[in-house]
Design a protein around this nucleic acid. Structure first.
Lengths: 179, 179
DNA sequence: GTTCACATGTAATGAGTTACATGATTCA
DNA sequence: TGAATCATGTAACTCATTACATGTGAAC
């Protein structure tokens, strides 16, 4: 994550900017942000509540967002909105030339790479697991109604990548039989 | 990473098992393991030296591997081999029913999802960056000579996924002009 | 003589998870 | 009445990064 040290920049984490942008787009509580990311971005981004809630507090302390407690029909929630500083900082980051980092770990694929392929049963099991996960994710992505055009394009990529993985699992499994 | 607590199991991290398997396959130094993973698994796994070297020491302390310093033609390196316990533990993990976790963060895609798509220039820039990264990775994967059959299949998946991403970037950029 | 590949390592730091704790509402 | 969904939050922990430090040999 090569963000160089530069005192002129707030230098938040990518997750913080994600949160900022979600609030900008109307996903104004921690819960809603998590739900949305899980549905719309699950094929390239992950989050947990243990990350989101402290992040919201940090961003508020830093003056990037401001929150207020809302109680409607008995349920309490904390709604946030961007401050001027938050808007500025988000805009700055989005136009920033810093090269984006990629971080990935697919344990299923790792296992598949490490197991003995003569053990057809084990290969089949791992292939099945990967297929299941991918097609579950594919369904989640497909079920998603993207809010804007960019959402439609991103969604399409997710569908293609996940469908490709499912197809690969099927073909690989089929290849197992022809031996 | 839902590895349940079970005193009967050594419960190492997935990275530790990756290291174990690499040593099993003849990649017997930290440097070689990193090189190989970078080339063969870059599309689904990441590693850094800061992770690998301490991991090798930990595994040695745990009796899973044993290392010895080798100096050939002036250069010193530490070569490892699996102990009986290491072989056993690796075998156990590979047959383990624990569901594999997926963890991913593609900052380029995140930016693309968060930017204003009416700013065609910015979209183009981000698309270009993603395309560059993906085609670089694609080349790395293509250049790789897989050691075994399983390597060939995994390699094929990487190629398909990366090629799909590159194609998506191109199509999306082309679509930008038709507006 | 300088750059690239080989080769190993540590310290400081940060990010993000899991498990836990709590409680209301809605729906079957 | 029980399960699912809505909703927030903390503590302990693990993992893994980045930056730094060091040195050799080979190739140009």
């Amino acid at each position: 994550m090569s963000r160089e040290h530069d005192p002129a920049q707030a230098d938040l984490s990518p997750s913080a900017y994600m949160v900022l942008a979600m609030i900008r787009d109307g996903f104004d509580t921690g819960y809603r942000i998590k739900q949305f990311i899980e549905r719309a971005a699950s094929f390239f981004w992950s989050v947990s509540y243990g990350q989101i809630y402290p992040e919201l507090r940090r961003l508020e302390a830093a003056g990037m967002i401001s929150g207020r407690d809302v109680t409607s029909s008995g349920r309490r929630r904390r709604e946030y909105s961007l401050t001027a500083a938050g808007k500025r900082e988000l805009r700055r980051w989005l136009a920033d030339p810093a090269e984006p980092s990629i971080w990935l770990r697919n344990e299923g694929l790792l296992r598949l790479m490490l197991i003995d392929w003569d053990d057809t049963e084990l290969v089949r099991k791992n292939l099945g697991e990967l297929r299941q996960m991918s097609s579950d994710r594919l369904q989640t992505v497909q079920a998603m109604v993207p809010p804007r055009e960019r959402g439609r394009r991103i969604k399409e990529l997710g569908e293609r990548l996940l469908a490709e993985t499912v197809a690969w699992c099927d073909e690989t499994e089929a290849g197992l039989d022809r031996r």
